[in-house]
């Protein structure tokens, strides 16, 4: 089973690596980060420069990057359904759910690459232009560079959970539509609709998008010298993201396994 999933995952990657848009979108994010010092200068003091990282990361990853990751994932299955290649794949000796999991893994990998790119670029800019010697206020060292790196790494790790939930969500939508464009539009539209309706409906605590930026915010809090790390929020993030991930994956697998792929 693992071998088949891994093979299907490698196949997915070999296909994605040959798509221009995979690189274009990464380039777009890189460009956004590269231009951000013009909007929010790297001032050369340690406080402000860690702040630059905290400023850039959620904007590049949770707004632009997340949108592109959703668009990438939303096209993974709907493209195959629209072109008909799904029929070729499903006549191969692989379970349908295994194929869906491989698609999910491809989406997650893309998200991971996007996150890594954002992280590397934002830190590199500050490394070249700024000062990374810890967060100091009023002469008092509040967080050393090592602590800031740890906080960021923890944020990186934690932020993967809601993003993974988003990937699974996009994949589920991808299985319910037959055109890549409508799939991307439905995914992004639902995301925005959820964001604007979740609070009036009182369900914001249960929607994974609420927690998308939270892990980076803890890093930002450190940059601002605020200690607000709370395990309760982290638990909510994990529970909500995990539930969304499982539900979305269930929807995606059910949708694919119960469907007939006739002409």
């Amino acid at each position: 089973m693992m071998g088949r999933i891994w093979t299907a995952y490698l196949v997915e990657w070999s296909k994605s690596l040959r798509l221009k848009r995979s690189y274009l979108w990464l380039l777009l994010v890189a460009l956004a980060i590269g231009c951000s010092p013009f909007l929010r200068p790297v001032v050369g003091d340690s406080v402000g420069d860690y702040g630059f990282i905290a400023y850039v990361t959620p904007l590049a990853m949770n707004v632009l990057g997340f949108f592109l990751v959703l668009a990438f994932t939303a096209g993974l299955i709907s493209t195959e359904m629209a072109s008909g290649t799904i029929r070729m794949v499903l006549t191969r000796p692989i379970h349908r759910w295994e194929w869906v999991v491989a698609k999910l893994m491809a989406g997650l990998t893309y998200a991971l690459i996007m996150m890594t790119l954002v992280s590397i670029l934002s830190w590199a800019i500050v490394w070249v232009l700024g000062d990374l010697s810890g967060v100091t206020y009023g002469g008092e060292l509040l967080s050393s560079h090592g602590e800031m790196v740890s906080a960021y790494t923890f944020g990186f790790f934690l932020s993967f959970f809601p993003i993974a939930a988003g990937v699974a969500f996009a994949l589920a939508i991808s299985t319910l539509t037959r055109s890549p464009i409508s799939s991307v539009m439905a995914t992004v539209g639902l995301w925005l609709a959820l964001d604007f309706l979740k609070t009036p409906l009182g369900i914001d605590a249960y929607i994974f998008t609420t927690y998308l930026e939270m892990p980076w915010q803890h890093f930002a809090d450190r940059c601002d010298g605020i200690a607000t790390q709370e395990s309760k929020d982290i638990l909510h993030l994990l529970l909500c993201s995990g539930t969304t991930f499982i539900l979305a994956l269930f929807v995606a697998i059910t949708s694919i396994t119960r469907r007939d792929f006739s002409r």
Partner: peptide, 14 residues
Amino acid sequence: MGVLLERPVFYEHL
């Protein structure tokens, strides 16, 4: 088993 369905489709960019 090998299958050839009517009007075979491929990954066009490959």
